[in-house]
Design a protein around this nucleic acid. Structure first.
Lengths: 277, 277
DNA sequence: TTGACAAATGACTCACTAGTCATTACTATA
DNA sequence: TATAGTAATGACTAGTGAGTCATTTGTCAA
């Protein structure tokens, strides 16, 4: 167990400096003063190591932030405490944070991408709960945009103190972001990210949607919709899905018909993926 | 020449899917239907290829945005046109954009990091010029924060349409960001990023500052400052730099004295790096 | 001291990569 | 058609990396 921690610590060092791909197991074991074989007694593979690191730190970071949000009773202080804790915990684990930002995950294995996706959703949930508690129905239409703005603030200002090791005043930074967040929450009138868009995004990317699921959604939407063109298009597309008879050009045209209908974005997206347009 | 473009195109494909490191020259040439030797007739190395790609696209993207900002005469439309062009150009080159986000550069060779740093500064300049034109002295104190917020918006919303290939309404997105930017520009009162901080950051990271340059800065600051403690601390630190006589603890204490003085952040940062505190 | 078990080692395998270069295929001119 | 010059090839080199496993070292109870 101790060995495992040693390896994780030293590997973190090297990953933060050189990146994951560029660091060999050899280097890690040398840096630990152990043999290569020994490494494989603690971890089945290099991938298992990075997974352990990500789990270890993401759990800490996530729970730090979650704890703060749950245990700050004073609503007036909530946003400030959130930002402060977030920056503070990332600062505490800055080597890990560097890895997180450098390796945009993406190119790793499936398991890892899935895992990061989950942590991401978890964090979004925490932010959402905070927003809903602070602003109530006032932000109903713009709450998802607010999440994205907060995440935007986090990422740009994080870069600042991770990659230029400049001394920063976290208190001032948090204060400044509190003001910005309040401004956006109270005065934004043009929402961009709708409930539907969020559903599209949070759909697990890997999993394929089945034809049956699509048919189900289409049935529901056909009932919901009043506009005749869209309704008929949707109906024809449903027929096409059950029994392909129409030419690609027609299918594409029908898809175009429903593309901009607010209730059809999700299904038109699925269909486009299905037909590989 | 044609060959070069073919390679760049196909490589872009693979890099966007798998990442730069994970894509071998072999794979690229297979994807092009040419031999390995042929690759090396067009590019001296794999690094030269990624450099060519980055230059090719960054120049296009940067000049697209710059053109729009320079040629939009109507101030009322400027912000909108900026966002729209930015998203539009990144969308047009979405494979490249993916690479840009995935490979956080960082772990590449020196030349590339330097190059990206330059494009980054160029883009910040464009944004700054836009902000100054739109809001004049109204934003003097918060203009750098505004740049960072705009960059934050850009990066989060870019992620949205790069990694979930969801159909997005760029016009609405741009409108929505215009509103947010205006809100922040007109009502923010708590600045975080000062002129001095920006100078710290834009300092080329690779180049080492010489003792002489530090002495020069210190002389200037000693004259500027009125507060006696800070002034004396700075004076002692200057003596120490010329002729080390004080113990590390004392030096650290003196540094602590000047750390929070608004005029001394930069020099205290340099000194801390110099003494490796 | 011995024997049994666990922990640790590092030489080794196998797969893969960037980059080279002698050879071959192609092209255009005389 | 012959020839010179260019473009393209792919087997090859030299190197690296992840992961394995026969062997050695350490530990502790009898």
């Amino acid at each position: 167990m101790i060995k495992k921690q040693l390896i994780m610590e030293k590997a973190l060092d090297l990953f933060a400096k050189q990146g994951f791909e560029a660091t060999s197991v050899q280097q890690i074991t040398e840096h630990c003063g152990i043999s290569k074989g020994s490494f494989y007694l603690s971890f089945k593979s290099k991938d298992e190591l990075i997974l352990a690191l990500i789990d270890h730190f993401m759990m800490q970071i996530t729970s730090d932030i979650d704890y703060t949000v749950r245990n700050t009773n004073d609503d007036k202080k909530l946003l400030y405490e959130f930002y402060y804790t977030m920056f503070h915990t990332f600062h505490k684990h800055s080597d890990f944070a560097k890895i997180l930002i450098k390796e945009q995950i993406q190119s790793f294995n499936e398991v890892l991408i899935e895992r990061m996706h989950n942590y991401n959703q978890l964090n979004e949930k925490i932010i959402l709960s905070m927003i809903e508690r602070l602003y109530r129905e006032e932000v109903e239409l713009i709450k998802y945009d607010l999440i994205y703005c907060i995440k935007g603030f986090m990422s740009t200002y994080l870069q600042l103190f991770l990659f230029y090791n400049v001394p920063l005043d976290l208190e001032l930074l948090s204060q400044s972001l509190v003001e910005k967040t309040n401004l956006l929450a109270r005065h934004t009138t043009v929402p961009f990210i709708s409930q539907e868009l969020i559903e599209m995004i949070n759909q697990p990317m890997t999993e394929e949607i089945t034809k049956e699921q699509m048919l189900e959604i289409m049935d529901k939407k056909i009932e919901e919709i009043d506009e005749s063109i869209e309704k008929e298009s949707l109906f024809l597309l449903k027929q096409q899905l059950l029994e392909p008879t129409l030419s690609p050009a027609i299918v594409k045209g029908l898809l175009e018909n429903i593309r901009n209908h607010p209730h059809c974005k999700w299904i038109s997206y699925l269909l486009r993926r299905y037909y590989e347009f």
